[in-house]
Design a protein around this nucleic acid. Structure first.
Length: 175
DNA sequence: CGCCTGATTGTTCGA
DNA sequence: TCGAACAATCAGGCG
C-alpha cells in the first residue's frame, strides 16, 4: 500500500527538482547545512521566548488549512488516535484524493493568507527599521484592515466546511 | 521537568 | 533556479 509514497501521482515535473526535499523524510527534516550551533528547533523556543511578537510566522498552506479541518473530523472518527503522524498520513492521502474543485476553497484561503502575510511582513519590516533607530514601536494604524474585495462570505460556511469534509470523509472511508 | 520528534504537503525566503 | 527550512498538532520519549 503505497510504501513508495505518492512519488508518482503527485509529481508535477517541477516537483521533480524538489526531490531532495523528500530526503527530509529519511530522518532529519532540517539543518543539514547549518549544523552550527545547537541547531535545535528554535521555532518552539521562539514561541516561548517571544522575542519578536510581531514576527509573522508562515501562514498555513492550503494543505494545512485542509488539515486543520481534517484533524477535527479525524478526531471525531478516531478519538483514540494518538499520533500526529496518523492525521498527517491520512490527511495527506486524502488531500491527494481531493479534486481541484475541492482544493479550490482551500487554495482560496491560502491566497488570502498570502495577502495578509504580505501586510504583516511589510509592517514587520517597517517596524524593524523603526526600532533600529528608536525602539519606539507604535507606528500608525496598521490595524490590518484587509477588507478589500471579496471574501468574508464565509462565517457560516465554516461549519459547513467541517460538515462537508465529514461527509466526504465518511464517503471515502466507506469506499 | 521540559523540549524535541514524528508525518503530511505547501509555501516562502535565501544563496 | 534550486534548495533547504518551516508552518500545526499532540502525545510520547528522552536527557
Amino acid at each position: 500500500m503505497k510504501s513508495a509514497k505518492g512519488k508518482g501521482p503527485t509529481k508535477k515535473g517541477t516537483r521533480e527538482a524538489l526531490k531532495p526535499v523528500d530526503d527530509r523524510k529519511l530522518g532529519k527534516r532540517k539543518a543539514p547545512v547549518k549544523a552550527d550551533k545547537s541547531s535545535k528547533k528554535l521555532t518552539k523556543k521562539e514561541k516561548a521566548v517571544k522575542k519578536d511578537p510581531n514576527k509573522p510566522k508562515r501562514p498555513p498552506s492550503a494543505f494545512f488549512v485542509f488539515l486543520e479541518e481534517f484533524r477535527k473530523v479525524y478526531k471525531q472518527e478516531h478519538p483514540n488516535v494518538k499520533a500526529v503522524s496518523a492525521v498527517g498520513k491520512a490527511g495527506g492521502e486524502k488531500w491527494k484524493s481531493l479534486s481541484d474543485a475541492e482544493k479550490a476553497p482551500f487554495e482560496a484561503k491560502a491566497a488570502k493568507r498570502k495577502a495578509d502575510y504580505e501586510k504583516q511582513i511589510s509592517a514587520y519590516n517597517k517596524k524593524q527599521e523603526s526600532m533600529a533607530d528608536d525602539g519606539e514601536e507604535e507606528s500608525d494604524r496598521s490595524k490590518s484592515e484587509v477588507n478589500d474585495d471579496e471574501e468574508d462570505s464565509e462565517e457560516v460556511s465554516n461549519l459547513n466546511f467541517a460538515n462537508w469534509l465529514l461527509k466526504l470523509f465518511l464517503k471515502i472511508n466507506d469506499m
